[in-house]
Design a protein around this nucleic acid. Sequence first.
DNA 1: ATGGTGAGCACTATTACCTCA
DNA 2: CATGAGGTAATAGTGCTCACC
Length: 333
Amino acid sequence: MELALSLGGETPKPIMFLEKSSSSSSSLHDKKVNKDDLGFCMVLGKCNEGHEDENGRRKRSRNHHQEVTICSKGSSSKDLSLQLDLLPSSKNTSSQLGFPWLSQNLATEPASLTNGPALEAEEGAALSSPNSEISSFQMNFPIYKNGKLINMKRDQYDGDYKWGNINNYSTSRASDEDDASARKKLRLTKEQSAFLEESFKEHNTLNPKQKLALAKQLNLRPRQVEVWFQNRRARTKLKQTEVDCEYLKKCCETLTEENKRLHKELQELRALKSSQPFYMQLPATTLTMCPSCERVATTSATTITAAATTTPVGAAADTAGVHNHKLITLMTK
DNA sequence: ATGGTGAGCACTATTACCTCA
DNA sequence: CATGAGGTAATAGTGCTCACC
């Protein structure tokens, strides 16, 4: 970390900690960064997401409402009452999925879950859009017209209506489906949350097979697992941001103090210099400071130059068993 | 080889419900 | 009991990548 010290009494310049491309989509590229790289990196400044085009309109090449509309296609199908088994069939699934903790649980699954067609169905579901999940459930479908929900208030409409819910509603909801106004929010059980946490420690992203296996394991919809992981990643990022901000704040305070101290020291040295008789003034006064012991020594330029040319400063200090003296040299007239 | 398109996934921002002090 | 704050499941909108045509 570098400390910029301005001379001559002008306004101190902003302190630069790190430089990073100001690409507007930088945040979106985080996923391309090695997730294990916890190196500290933070950008201060405005992030221009640029989500609007030159006319100020929101740009979107694909409208996800279209996907929801596709749900309606399923509503005409009698397949809606068909329950699909989505569990991966292999006993080695857990190792394939990278969830060693899954092995015992999957091994106890009923044999009926291991038939070939089930796996094919699962694979198909895994590779298709979330809409494919809806074929397993009966529900009231929202009806869209020109992308707008017309048969249900927005706050009555959520995933439970959209995709159905095999978790808590699969039995009870069937009896009170008519009561569309009673929106209930799913609360994951402690066991489910703990299980998801464990899997998150293993992988903070899921491939489709892992997602399906987890969903089956926890008796949740794959979409719920997916959403949980999304929110979990967001929480992690938020926490990390808070930690980073705290760290930056401390750094800033420390550097501000350091800057003040150095300014004060500089003023003292200038005062000292101006008070010295003319004949005592060297052509150039070299001030050296050790950041570790924070002492300033006044030497002649020739002395420090000689030292620098004969011995690398850090090496000399290290061999002498002394802390690394990085000399900050202030040349004054 | 190149460009358009759709699917899938990740991300952020936001909403809405639930819990608890 | 009412209420506000905080937590979190879920949704919406967007960008990026990849496969396919």
